[in-house]
């Protein structure tokens, strides 16, 4: 390989002190691994959802019945 003379020469100071200012920077919150749910918890949540649905359905049915009565 032919020797290519570079235009840029690296500068490595051998004397003097190197200083770097440590500026506090803002921090981001960390990425969040989502915890897996236990079987019991999933069942509980499912049951609660179903129960809420059932209540809602019944309430709707009640309202419907009242509306029919009013007519």
């Amino acid at each position: 390989m032919p020797e290519v003379k570079s235009i840029f020469r690296e500068v490595l100071p051998k004397q003097g002190q190197l200083s770097m200012e440590d500026v506090p920077t803002m921090v981001l919150c960390k990425p969040k691994l989502l915890p897996l749910k236990s079987v019991t918890l999933e069942k509980l949540e499912k049951m609660q959802m179903e129960a809420q649905e059932a209540v809602k359905q019944q309430e709707l049915a009640m309202k419907g019945a009242v509306a029919v009565d009013a007519q």
């Binding site: 960390k30 918890l41 509980l44």
Partner: peptide
């Protein structure tokens, strides 16, 4: 990250 009680979050939740 921490949970609300100040514990590190875990990999698994139970009730």
């Amino acid at each position: 990250p921490l949970t609300q009680s100040g514990r590190p979050i875990t990999g698994f939740v139970r009730p």
